Amino acid sequence: MKTNFIHTYVSVDCVVFGFDDEQLNILLVQRNNIDENDPKRLKLPGSLIFDNEDVDDAASRVLYELTGIRRMTLKQFRCFAAPDRASNPQDIKWLDQAYKPDIDRLITVAYFSLCKIGRKLNVSNITKYKAVEWCPLSELPDMPFDHNKIVEASLIDIRRWIETDPVIVFDLLPQKFTISQLHRLYESIYNKKIDIRNFHKKVATMTYVLPLAEKQLGVSHRAARYYKFDKKAYNRLKTSI
């Protein structure tokens, strides 16, 4: 029986979410060895895996090289393996220049990660990419390969995760936040309007979201109270359940 084995390579791609107080953003990189005017110059950060690496280790490496942060929330959510996902001539050209292997087919294991935009990202020593930038989710460009599909799939998965483990949203917020900030974050994740009164009721059931004595300063509107996420209270709740 004849078999048609091909040169297949495995990569990882990472969807890094950040929240800027108004909307979700994705951390994108500019790939090298392309025309500056190429409409598909921006992509998700990723890499082929090394021969001695597990895919999880490869994803952690990509994020560390990109941000300088050792520990970030990281979740594998799907494998993308369509035979034609790397068939675009420009994508093939970039692969040849970036890696130079004989790649007939490229399979990627996709991850998403959560990062506070306020954290300083250590990208000064990154030479792999020409530029790194936060891009609003609502303004994502047409990206190479199937990276737009990967982002869409990551949103579906992060919504499912929140339903079972809502604590992950606090990885996107500052240590102290207002209910309005939390409300805008939920609206951004779910891409829909959420009634603020019902949302206040929802937050009231979150015994791990604690009000602080501190309020906003120097604002033109009525100063809002700050809240914090209490990890110990959340762990006690999980244990009791």
Rank of each mutant, 00 (worst) to 15 (best):
M1P: 11
F5Q: 13
I6L: 15
I6C: 12
V12T: 14
F19R: 10
D20F: 09
D20Q: 05
I26Q: 05
L27Y: 06
L28V: 06
L28A: 01
D35A: 08
D38C: 09
D38E: 11
P45A: 14
E53D: 14
D54P: 04
D54Y: 05
V55A: 09
D57I: 15
L66T: 07
G68R: 07
G68W: 05
R70F: 05
T73A: 05
R78W: 02
R85I: 14
A86W: 03
S87I: 11
P89H: 09
P89G: 10
D96R: 10
P101T: 04
R105F: 02
L106C: 06
L106V: 06
I107P: 07
Y111W: 03
F112G: 02
C115G: 01
R119T: 02
S124N: 08
K128N: 01
K128W: 00
A131K: 12
E133A: 11
P144R: 03
F145C: 05
D146Q: 14
I150E: 07
I150K: 15
A153F: 12
I156M: 08
D157C: 15
D157I: 11
I162D: 02
E163C: 14
E163H: 14
D165F: 13
V167C: 08
D171E: 15
L173A: 06
T178Y: 03
I179P: 07
L182S: 00
Y186T: 01
S188H: 05
Y190D: 02
N191W: 00
K192E: 14
D195R: 02
R197G: 01
H200I: 07
T205M: 10
V209A: 10
V209M: 07
E214L: 12
H221T: 10
A223H: 05
Y227S: 08
Y227Q: 04
Y227H: 11
D230K: 03
R236F: 08
R236A: 10
R236T: 12
